[in-house]
Amino acid sequence: MDDVSILGVATLSKKFGGVTAVQDVSVDVPRGGILSIIGPNGAGKTSLLNMISGFYRPDTGRVVLEGQDITQMKPSDIAALGIARTFQNIALFSGLTVLDNLMLGRHVRMKAGVLSSVIYWGMAQKEDIAHREAVEEIIEFLNLQDLRKQQSASLSYGLRKRVELGRALASEPKVLLLDEPMGGMNQDEKEDMARYVLDVNQERGVTVVLIEHDMGVVMDISDKIVVLDRGRCIATGTPDEVQRHPKVVEAYLGTSKSGGRL
């Protein structure tokens, strides 16, 4: 990992039985930037995020966050160090309100446990107030003020995606891993989410790693793009460099003007 990178993966590989999901992938994620990972279904994109966030243990290689090897750490410990993620399938607690779902995102920042809450009530109460203030700030940031007391199950798909983004932000991440945050959205919802991703990056200073199929979004907001094909990295560079890369043009972008999705 170089000096301007916050996160680095080196020669990561992962097999499931006889199927190789990821093979010898190395990526440096620039601090404060937006890096997009693209490729067709089955290219290994989500498996790569799962290894970074600790949900999968790689067969080979390592993951380094700000110089610290996190390869063998548990997901909760990795989250506490500053890596948060969202999932392809929305993972909210449908019976809880928007506010309660976001409060759950604060758990990695909570110091007062059950016992200390009983013995040192004042300390726990002050901490709870501070966490609620942090969550209220995120609610305002994501324009969810009128929805804070609604159950997440009652929200539209696009709003639930936004709440999931908010829950990830509630953990105060240094690096945010977004797995298809715009998947299944209509055009207006995509534009809203793209704006929020940019705001998270530019206003809150969070480094973003994004899996996305919509090439228009990817080319508009990315500082760097990694292209995977059958578990291997076939191209890395700026949007302009990737668009001109022969392997990417041949395998994904093609010559048709009717595309826009990988």
Score class of each variant (00 low, 15 high):
S256Y: 08
N201V: 07
M182G: 09
I34Y: 03
K14V: 07
G166Y: 05
K149C: 14
A10M: 12
P181R: 10
G231A: 02
Q23N: 15
T20E: 11
I34S: 10
R85C: 03
T97E: 06
L198S: 12
L104H: 11
I52R: 01
E140G: 14
V227A: 10
R160Q: 15
E250C: 07
L177W: 13
G205V: 03
H131R: 14
S5P: 05
V209C: 05
V22S: 06
N101W: 14
A124K: 04
G231S: 12
G82E: 04
Y56I: 02
V22N: 15
I221S: 03
D179W: 05
A170Y: 04
S36A: 14
L159C: 12
T255Q: 13
A168M: 03
K224H: 13
L142H: 03
D229T: 02
L65Y: 04
S222K: 09
K126Y: 05
E133R: 14
L177N: 15
P75C: 04
S5L: 13
L165R: 11
A170I: 05
G113R: 05
K14Y: 00
S13H: 09
H245N: 06
L12T: 01
D220E: 09
I90S: 09
L65R: 09
G67C: 01
F16M: 02
V218K: 02
G184K: 15
G216S: 11
Q145G: 12
L48Q: 00
S258I: 15
R148C: 14
F55L: 05
R244Y: 04
G259I: 10
D59I: 00
K247P: 03
V217L: 05
L49R: 06
E133C: 12
D24Q: 15
S13L: 00
D220S: 06
K111V: 04
H107M: 06
G54V: 04
I38G: 00
V108F: 09
I38A: 02
W121S: 10
A153C: 14
V208D: 02
T46E: 13
V135S: 03
S76F: 10
G205I: 07
L115V: 11
H131M: 14
V206R: 02
V22R: 07
M185V: 07
P181F: 02
D214A: 03
L210F: 04
L48K: 00
I6E: 06
E164T: 13
L177R: 12
R195N: 13
L12C: 01
R85Y: 00
G158V: 04
V200L: 14
K190S: 14
V27I: 13
Y56A: 00
D2L: 12
L96F: 04
M123V: 11
R204N: 07
A235D: 05
R162L: 13
S152M: 06
E212Y: 03
V197R: 04
A124V: 01
E137P: 12
R195H: 12
S116Q: 10
S116E: 15
I138T: 02
A124P: 01
A112E: 10
